[in-house]
Structure formats: structure tokens, C-alpha cells
Design a protein around this nucleic acid. Structure first.
Lengths: 159, 159
DNA sequence: CTGCAATAAGTTGTGCACAATTTAATTGTG
DNA sequence: CACAATTAAATTGTGCACAACTTATTGCAG
């Protein structure tokens, strides 16, 4: 916007004003994209009565069958503080059942109910809807994922 | 992961199993990157006593001076439901003051206090820290932003 | 000038993320 | 076997996002 873009990969040589713009645009872009995804998912999942995080949890169960809370959390990168109330809501909605494991009484295994299993059929068209809504060619999506992966790895390393 | 990647930009020809993977990896990648950013910002902002959204609000005020709630919300894409309590916390922390506008009694103008203005000095090194933590060359960040921008535009159009 | 649509904040309610703590069960070690 | 460390969930508390609604003010059309 102000001067010619730098060509070095070393941010140390840039003025603070430039840094401010760059880093916030990245974070803003990321948030904006997340927000936009949220809107599309909200729309697509409205008739299923699921939020996006609930949909993710159901996806895991549809794919893997009964799993302890811990295992669901590992796949979704969520802890029990988030999952316990979420799963409780899914149970209230009649989509899952939670049962203490007989082998390990600490563990709670989450099962799909018949209703929950049946919901899968109605959820099948969702991914196609979302992918179409991105408007990006598949190659670009793959490239984006790769870049985001490296970004996440670097950021995680930095903390 | 399983078969050769498709080379078409038309998702209609792909099997559902492949679609499931693609779209979720994108959303997951996006969430993972956001989460990772969150961690880095949390760390960088801890000693300032600010959360990331609070930091953004302060940035807007540092840059533009006194602004009505509405104007802050436009720049951050947040509504009063989010901003009102956030600004109230900033006011409690002694960083901002909120004053009814004399011209338009509906409007509340947010001013920095001396403490709030002074905090800017301590926040200056933050962007450099974040950018360094991304580990990406500047060109790639710019490209990423561009892709995310198009993604967001498409998704917004789709809702 | 009256009255009604539009606007600005705030409030309420739901749901998610994350940190910190609690409880209960299990595992490992002396 | 006893007991400390670990592990699995749940709970509590803070903060954010978003939708729906409320209140107060402004502005405009008749």
C-alpha cells in the first residue's frame, strides 16, 4: 500500500508499520475465512439441528463407531471442558448415548443411537455443498492446506 | 493419502469419500492455524493483560483515536453484542473511557486513557514476534492472504 | 409537527474454547 | 499390599461470537 513489497523472507529488515499490516492481515484473513466457513456450515447444518463442532463430533462417531471421550477429543483437538457439555447436548438431542466403560471405569464411551446413526444419511450432501461454496479449484485447496500446515507447525513450535 | 490426487477443478466428479477428506482438511487446517495463532498471541499478550480481541480493539484506537463503538465494530467485524462487554472490560482495566456523544446521543465514543495510550509502547514488539513465529517468508504470507481472501469472498457469496 | 422507520448500544441466551481445579479410577513402585 | 503419580471426565470460571430482542435517539415522510 505504501512502498514496494520486500523480497526477502527475513522480516527483520521491514519497518514496524509494514509488520503491523502483514501480520494482522494474515490473522484477519484467517479469521475472516473461519467466520465465512462458519456461516456456510451453519446454513448447511441448520436443518440437521447441529452446530459445526457437534457435526464434527458426529462425523468422528459415524466413521469410527463408539469411542471414549478422550479419543474424540484427540481427533478434534478438544478437551473435556469443551466436549463434556457438547456431548451432553447431543445426548439430550437423542443422538448419542454415554456409557461408563466396564474395563476402565474412568472412561465414558460415546455410542450413536439409532437416531444419531440415521442422521448420517441427511449429512452426506454437506461436504459437497461446502466444497462447492469454497469456489476454489482442488489444486488450490490442497496447496492452501499445505501452507496452513506449515504455518501451524511453525506457530506451535513457537509457543 | 489413498489414491492419486484429482487434477480437475470441478469437485463434482470426485467420490464422496474424497470430498469428505478435502473439505474437512481445509476447515481443520484453518482452525488449527487459528488456534496456533491464538496460542502465540496469548503468550505475547499475557504480560500486557490483553486478550487477542482486546488487543485488536486497542490497535484500532491507537491508530485512529477516539471512535464510536459502531466504527470499531466495522473495522473488526464485531457487533455490539461482542464489543459492549469487551469494551466494558477494557474500561474496568482503566485503558479506555466511554462517553456519550454530544452530537448523537445514541452513539458512545471510546477514548483511550493515558494508561491505555501508554500501553502502546509495550505492544509495539508484538507484531514482530508474531510474524517471526509464523516462520513463513513474506511472499508466502502475501500469497496466503490472497488465497484466503478469495476463499472468504466465495464463501460469503454462498451464504 | 406528528409519527414511524432506521440507527446505536446494550442486554439476554446459547454455544464454543481454554485454563484451572476436582473427583474417581487405575497404574506403578517401594 | 500400600501409596504416590497418572489418567479420564466433569466442573467452574472467564471470555468471545452470534442471534434475537430492547431501549433510546435520530431523521424523514406525510
Amino acid at each position: 500500500m505504501t512502498s514496494s513489497p520486500p523480497h526477502s523472507s527475513d522480516p527483520a529488515g521491514l519497518p514496524d508499520s509494514e509488520l503491523l499490516r502483514l501480520d494482522h492481515q494474515v490473522c484477519f484473513s484467517l479469521q475472516a475465512a473461519s467466520r465465512a466457513f462458519g456461516g456456510v456450515y451453519r446454513e448447511a447444518l441448520r436443518e440437521l439441528g447441529l452446530t459445526y463442532p457437534q457435526y464434527l463430533a458426529m462425523m468422528v462417531l459415524w466413521e469410527h463407531g463408539p469411542l471414549p471421550v478422550r479419543a474424540i477429543g484427540e481427533r478434534l483437538h478438544l478437551d473435556s471442558g469443551t466436549l463434556s457439555p457438547l456431548l451432553k447436548r447431543l445426548e439430550t438431542a437423542g443422538l448419542v448415548r454415554r456409557e461408563r466403560s466396564a474395563q476402565d471405569e474412568r472412561s465414558v464411551v460415546v455410542h450413536l443411537t439409532d437416531t444419531g446413526a440415521a442422521l448420517r444419511e441427511r449429512a452426506l450432501p454437506v461436504p459437497r455443498t461446502i466444497l462447492a461454496a469454497t469456489g476454489l479449484p482442488v489444486e488450490e485447496i490442497v496447496a492452501l492446506q499445505r501452507t496452513l500446515g506449515r504455518l501451524t507447525a511453525s506457530l506451535s513450535r513457537a509457543v
